[in-house]
């Protein structure tokens, strides 16, 4: 009694199901792959977002500077520049980048009670 090797038992039915094309067969009828267009949501996720802080007459300037230093790790002079921009121009873009991280920054800023928003880069 002969015993077939294991691979024949396992692979045999699979191989049998594949139609082998002759060498000179016409080009395959399989069309070129269709590349689907990315949806607008996916595109939106890839676009950078701004973390914007808005002016608030109640928050102390020294407090806002401290928050920028803590949240973004900015040196004092850079944190002060942004604080003054908020104070004089009403808003300042503190950071730009991927949405997930931008959301985290805004959450931290809200934790310090600053008026902060996410804005999609247009």
């Amino acid at each position: 009694m002969s015993v077939e090797p294991l691979w024949v038992e396992v692979a045999g039915p699979i191989i049998a199901g594949i139609e082998m094309l002759p060498k000179n067969a016409a080009p395959s009828t399989i069309g070129a792959p269709t590349i689907e267009e990315e949806t607008s949501t996916e595109q939106a996720l890839d676009l950078p977002w701004h973390v914007v802080v808005h002016n608030d007459p109640v928050n102390l300037m020294s407090y806002v500077t401290m928050v920028f230093q803590r949240v973004f790790g900015y040196p004092r002079d850079k944190a002060e520049r942004h604080m003054l921009e908020v104070h004089h121009k009403g808003r300042s873009i503190l950071w730009s980048g991927m949405r997930e991280r931008a959301e985290l920054y805004v959450q931290q800023l809200h934790g310090y009670l600053l008026l902060a928003t996410l804005e999609k880069v247009s």
């Binding site: 959301e103 959450q107 809200h110 934790g111 009670l113 902060a116 928003t117 996410l118 804005e119």
Partner: peptide, 26 residues
């Protein structure tokens, strides 16, 4: 003022998620 929205009105989905998940944390 204390629980201000994280984005302008155009980002309704983001604002809704924020209210549901982030606001309780705050």
């Amino acid at each position: 003022r204390i629980f201000s929205p994280p984005a302008n009105g155009k980002e309704a989905e983001l604002c809704a998620e924020w209210k549901m998940y982030v606001e309780p944390e705050l």
